[in-house]
Design a protein around this nucleic acid. Structure first.
Lengths: 182, 182
DNA sequence: ACAAAATATATCAATTCGATATATGGTCTA
DNA sequence: TAGACCATATATCGAATTGATATATTTTGT
């Protein structure tokens, strides 16, 4: 699914600027399952305008900085739901952290522990923000997606915490068995 | 993390061809947390060769098709672990399925149900293959990452199954209340 | 013996990322 | 109240990546 469809979908909920779309996709309630940058959003909006799937009101009053508020058109709505009739592609998960974990045995134990602790903190933060959003806009269109994110992050947090505990136990045992030999 | 680092990391475990790297990243034990196509892998290997981080033996014997087996060099290994000393970037999750779910209320219930059922089947397949891999290469370097994937997919599967059940209950109630009014 | 699938390298247009440039409005504080 | 700083907002550009395709040989299945 390309950024054009993403923009069109977001605009089907409310009219907004390119800046707003980027905020939703990169920081807001949609950010845990999609992403887009200015560098793809603005060209996408230009193309959507050309295709007459969206229109914008140029709010350039009183010498204020131009502010293009985009709205979806009927034609755009039709196109969106045609697109949505196709099978969705597979989920994509990329984790630099998990890639790093492949080299766990080749780095000092304390280094990997730091990675674990940091990841736990990050996951906790993500989980909290998703739970807050889920409580807040209950019954909204993103309720299902937020619940999905909560379930995923809970499981990950649990896995990481258990791994950290077993990691520390193993390290302690290794130290003790080392001091036995001294 | 770029494809160059990905290739270098994979080659630090074993020498192999570009084709093999792509298989590992797109279908193998690493595929649930990273991805790369030929279009980025082959240029990456060229660059790594230029930088002397890898070397290849050109196995073009007896007029056979050329087959470049890449190996990491000592220089490459040093570079890899320098890179691995930096903080890993955040995980990225993209889900077209979750994007589609935003429009749940705007499509026929049976359409969304189909999406759910399909997603459940896919997740079950992914989970099974991850569990199999995890049993198989226990204690290998990807053990932690596989366990992470298993935990995540288990949670997702559980969430989806519960949602489907509640979905069907709601639909049934809606139908009954409709027939009451008839 | 033949067809189909897997192995293997490579390239290319289209897309997307990530960073940066530019400019205004609002808020905080010394 | 001046200055600093951050949020809002549009836009562009080189670099990186995707996704599809071309080509050719070997292996596997029937």
């Amino acid at each position: 699914m390309n950024v054009r469809t993403l923009c069109l979908g977001i605009l089907s909920f409310a009219q907004m600027t390119g800046y707003d779309i980027r905020k939703l996709a990169a920081e807001g309630n949609f950010s845990h399952f999609c992403e887009a940058n200015y560098g793809s959003i603005y060209p996408a909006l230009s193309q959507l305008t050309k295709d007459e799937f969206v229109v914008f009101t140029d709010e350039a009053l009183d010498g204020k900085p131009p502010r293009k508020i985009y709205s979806i058109t009927e034609k755009g709505r039709v196109h969106l739901f045609e697109t949505l009739n196709k099978q969705p592609g597979p989920d994509r998960f990329k984790s630099e952290f998990l890639f790093y974990s492949l080299f766990q045995d080749k780095m000092p134990a304390s280094d990997f522990r730091k990675l674990l602790v940091r990841k736990i903190a990050e996951t906790r933060d993500t989980l909290e923000s998703l739970e807050k959003a889920n409580d807040c806009c209950d019954h909204g269109p993103s309720h299902f997606a937020l619940g999905y994110g909560v379930a995923m992050n809970k499981a990950v947090l649990d896995y990481l915490k258990k791994y950290l505990a077993s990691f520390d136990t193993t390290q302690k045992e290794a130290t003790e068995s080392l001091s036995d030999k001294d």
